[in-house]
Design a protein around this nucleic acid. Structure first.
Length: 222
DNA sequence: AAGCAGGGCAACCGCCACATA
DNA sequence: CTATGTGGCGGTTGCCCTGCT
């Protein structure tokens, strides 16, 4: 049996948001807070899908968004986190206050990817392109080869991850396919632990799931 | 000045995990 | 235990802007 659509597509607007729609959404969320995205559009008088409202709020309207250019420090942090986590944009975004997963994803695809290539580094594997000397390249799985949204194998073999949150077995700590990455960042001192999310309060509130996305991956870069 | 190409970014789509009835 | 609803995530698309010819 098929899933019911998330909204009545026939009666919803699509495409770019207008100023008026933005105002309505912001006003509604200010008055009632986030939550229940499905019913929000109707309650707020918006002809939009709930998902669309959520995305618009999270990626563009949230007051705590930084916007503007990424700093070099942010660049480097993203690169390092990507090396560890792969395309787990939401996890990466959680470590960059004021930045959204969508923003980081776009930034990665447009800027950082090229930056790495120009440095001679493969943006997927974070290893030197071509002539890569690490002959151990025998198909070491890359971070991005992590199966989509299963229990997240953080794939960090050098640290014990204690999973307090998971009801589904939580974070599998697999033999480290990414252990090699440490050698890429000799100056990187990481503290990894699962703990309470240190993200924006409303983000926490709306976070229902107790999987790898909501488990906080505490990474301290020293 | 006009046309074209490429890049950047907002938004959409489809899938998945979890909660709940 | 199963079916269904909802929220969240990552990948992808397509429009718009800018720079180049």
């Amino acid at each position: 049996m098929g899933r019911s659509p998330c909204c009545e597509k026939a009666h919803t607007n699509k495409g770019a948001w207008t100023k008026e729609e933005d105002d309505r959404l912001v006003a509604y969320i200010r008055a009632h807070g986030e939550g229940c995205w499905r019913s929000l559009p109707k309650a707020a008088g918006l002809l939009r899908c709930g998902k669309s409202c959520r995305l618009r709020w999270i990626n563009y309207l949230r007051p705590d968004l930084k916007r503007g250019n990424f700093t070099d420090e942010e660049d480097e942090l993203i690169i390092k986190l990507h090396g560890l986590l792969g395309n787990k944009w939401s996890l990466i975004a959680a470590r960059l206050p004021g930045r959204t997963d969508n923003e980081i994803k776009n930034y990665w695809n447009t800027h950082i990817r090229r930056k790495l290539v120009s440095r001679g580094i493969d943006p997927v594997t974070h290893r030197p392109i071509a002539g890569a000397d690490h002959a151990s390249s025998e198909a070491a799985p890359t971070p991005t080869s992590v199966p989509k949204r299963t229990t997240t194998p953080f794939a960090i073999g050098f640290v014990d991850i204690e999973d307090k949150s998971s009801s589904t077995g939580g974070c599998e700590v697999e033999p480290s396919p990414s252990a090699w990455q440490l050698s890429e960042f000799p100056d990187l001192n990481l503290e990894l632990s699962i703990g309470p999310p240190s993200q924006a309060p409303e983000q926490q509130k709306s976070s229902r799931r107790q999987d790898s996305s909501s488990s906080t991956l505490r990474i301290q870069l020293l």
